[in-house]
């Protein structure tokens, strides 16, 4: 798969249309206080509320085949893919290139979904419902993959692409190594395609992505350090390319208390300090870090209003919205208490 390079300097005015559009789209996102109200609703009420929002079309379309949490889950995924494809459709030139580069994460998500589905013997239809064709790989190709019988056939379909090398790490027993390799490939590709160019937009994208890698690594460290896993294993699971990579690598394998003390003073500390002090769960810390990342994306986009950053902010906010709705609905279906669900919701 050839990797495109940015052709020329980015001019801020190129971003005027797409940033104007995403700022208008941002106003249609579900307000944070609505999550609180959704926690008190039953699933049919949540579905009715979502019908009054941008999810109406998907819910109406899928209501005849699905119901309850399943309906909400599939409809939100379908809407997410539609929204991201729309962003690609309405952008040209540098913004389009950078948005696609970022949205390739959904290619990785889809490949992982198909591999997991095949690994656990899920049906084709089941797998297809969880696909989000928002990246480069289109619906048709992904459906073709989902219909394949074995994992090996899926892997073979990627022969000649960047993904193939990562996928061949599959040993027939565990998917975690392949999944980790795919994540690393995503960030490596982005660095290769976007980094090293003179484009201002590309530099800003990488600035955000480096922060995102740090946050992901931080969550990995919270999970693995808490579980007392060996430093070398943790370091293997850390994604390279983050701004704090060296420092976070050194924290691998530390005792939980020592690790937490070492985090004081970092910019993200303010977002998690109270949860950490209370001894909160890792998923609660993860939700806080995610909220910090969303805030960060919008905060830096204020410094560069005509750049890729407002678009990234919207992409991240939309992704967070969908995952919040899914968490609430799935939590409700499983009979979890409102407090427990609230802890997981990013706001």
């Amino acid at each position: 798969m050839p990797v495109l390079r940015l052709p020329k300097f980015g001019k801020p005015v190129k971003y005027a249309y797409i940033t104007g559009r995403v700022r208008a789209m941002k106003t249609k996102l579900i307000p944070h206080e609505m999550y609180q109200r959704m926690l008190g609703m039953e699933i049919p009420e949540i579905t009715r509320y979502l019908e009054e929002t941008q999810y109406k079309e998907e819910i109406d379309l899928m209501a005849k085949d699905h119901s309850g949490a399943e309906l909400v889950e599939y409809a939100t995924f379908a809407n997410l893919a539609k929204t991201y494809r729309k962003l690609l459709r309405v952008s040209i030139d540098e913004p389009e290139f950078l948005i696609l580069e970022y949205l390739r994460r959904w290619d990785i998500w889809n490949i992982k979904t198909i591999l997991r589905g095949k690994f656990y013997g899920a049906s084709d239809e089941e797998i297809m419902k969880y696909l989000v064709p928002a990246g480069e790989l289109d619906q048709e190709f992904l459906e073709g993959l989902a219909k394949k019988e074995k994992i090996e056939e899926v892997i073979q379909a990627f022969d000649g692409t960047d993904y193939y090398e990562a996928l061949t790490q599959y040993d027939g027993q565990m998917l975690s190594s392949v999944e980790n390799a795919l994540d690393k490939l995503y960030y490596f590709r982005m660095e290769r395609a976007v980094g090293g160019t003179l484009s201002v937009g590309g530099g800003l994208l990488l600035k955000y992505v480096r922060k995102e890698i740090d946050v992901k690594n931080l969550v990995t460290l919270f999970r693995m350090n808490k579980a007392g896993i060996e430093a070398s294993v943790i370091q293997e699971n850390l994604l390279p390319g983050g701004k704090l990579h060296e420092e976070l690598s050194r924290m691998a394998g530390q005792s939980y208390n020592e690790f937490v003390r070492g985090l004081e003073g970092y910019p993200f500390w303010g977002a998690i300090s109270d949860v950490v002090a209370e001894g909160g769960s890792v998923s609660r810390i993860e939700a806080r870090l995610r909220a910090y990342l969303v805030r960060y994306a919008w905060a830096i986009s204020n410094y560069h209003p005509l750049s890729i950053l407002p678009v990234l902010g919207y992409i991240v906010s939309k992704d967070t919205e969908v995952s919040n709705i899914r968490k609430i609905v799935r939590g409700k279906e499983a009979g979890l208490s409102a407090e427990l669900i609230e802890e997981q919701v990013v706001s």
């Binding site: 797409i18 104007g20 208008a24 249609k28």
Partner: peptide, 13 residues
């Protein structure tokens, strides 16, 4: 040019 492009973007939504 920038304002016009941004306005068209917002009005589309």
């Amino acid at each position: 040019q920038g304002i016009g492009a941004a306005v068209v973007g917002v009005v589309a939504e």
